[in-house]
Computed example of a mutant assay.
Amino acid sequence: MSDNGRLGVFKTYKLFVGGKFPRSESGRVYEVTDSKESTWLANAPLASRKDARDAVVAARKAFGRWSGATAYNRGQVLYRVAEMLEGRREQFVREVADAEGLSKSKAAARVDAAVDRWVWYAGWTDKIAQVAGGGNPVAGPFFNLSSPEPTGVVAVLAPQESSLLGLVSVLAPVLAGGNTAVVVTSERAPLPALSLGEVLATSDVPGGTVNLLSGRTAELAAPLAAHADVNAIDLTGADPELATTLEAAAADNLKRVLRPRTEDWSADPGTRRLTAFLETKTVWHPTGSLGASGSAY
């Protein structure tokens, strides 16, 4: 109860799947507390395997539209997300401070770093092709060009101890490359991630491009690693034992797997996470004059 005797309105956190905010299909929730486990913060949805499968369906449906957009347009959309994050800065500072046990000033610094990192990756959308692709030397009457293309649907296990900056560090490069994502949020501190879903929903990101699931990391990661329609998985948020199990499951369906070093996400951003979920397409074309039909021969 507030000082004026008025009852506060508690926020209801929901999943973010297909551009909508469903509760878990199971109806389950779990208690989220502060970093000291002494203060209750909210009930978060406890997503199920069925929720994970629904998220994959949504991500696959959105892939054509997101990957088919121009790189410049994707950069504009991601920059818009950063604008929206900046506009809700105070909310995220409060949520990050509660989630990670930080002072307001330290939480503000992490939120600012998350916004800056999102902007950094937004700027790479129309530049990564020049870094990861290019013309190749060929001995013969041909020219040969390589260009990066998105891998597809990427399952992302968010870092456990960093509720927002860590999430942005693993999600933004996946999106910048033209992939769609199914994200398993930090199990202990999911609230800032679920609030990010509200930002995405009110920006220009197509529904289904990002899908956010809160709950037990191991419970949700297992079906994602085994899912034949998931093309890649980022194991950042998995402990070593779980990561090994998930790698084995992913090998059965030939997924790309990123198993980063400890705290890999916390380093200065770079192109490694961008190229981790890009495929290289190489095109050969004959050189020569144009014939009457206008085609090369």
Rank of each mutant, 00 (worst) to 15 (best):
A238D: 01
E263C: 00
K20E: 15
A222K: 14
L78D: 04
G27W: 09
A249R: 14
V174W: 06
P260T: 07
A109H: 10
K106D: 15
A69H: 05
G166Q: 06
A132I: 09
R88I: 00
A172S: 15
V93F: 01
V199N: 09
L274S: 02
A55M: 05
V81R: 09
G101V: 08
R256H: 04
A189Q: 11
K14M: 08
L7P: 03
G87R: 13
V199D: 09
T151I: 15
K104P: 00
A193G: 12
P141C: 00
E95K: 01
V119D: 04
T282V: 15
A47K: 09
L167Y: 04
G64K: 11
R272L: 10
S146R: 14
L194A: 08
D204Q: 12
E95L: 15
T280A: 11
A129C: 05
A97Y: 02
E198Y: 11
E37Q: 14
G207E: 09
G8Q: 09
S103L: 10
A52R: 07
T202E: 15
V17R: 03
G64N: 09
P141M: 07
G87D: 12
P190S: 01
A132L: 15
Y13C: 04
N231V: 00
T202C: 01
R28L: 11
V184K: 14
S105M: 05
R23M: 13
F21T: 13
H227Y: 01
R216A: 08
P206W: 05
N136T: 08
T12K: 14
R74Q: 02
H227Q: 01
R261V: 12
S105H: 07
E247N: 03
V81W: 10
N253K: 10
E247Y: 02
L102I: 05
G27Q: 06
T125M: 12
G207Y: 01
L175V: 07
A249E: 14
L167M: 12
F10V: 09
M84C: 02
V9L: 13
S203R: 11
S103P: 02
Q76E: 12
E247W: 00
T180F: 08
T236Y: 01
K14L: 12
A176N: 06
K104Q: 11
T287A: 08
R188S: 10
E263F: 14
L246G: 06
V283Q: 05
A228R: 15
A52H: 07
S147M: 15
S266K: 13
A276Y: 07
V131Q: 13
R53T: 07
A251V: 02
V168E: 11
N43L: 14
R259T: 09
G134W: 10
G152W: 03
T245N: 12
R94C: 00
V29T: 15
R261K: 11
K61Y: 10
L224K: 10
V174P: 01
V93Q: 01
Y79K: 13
V81N: 08
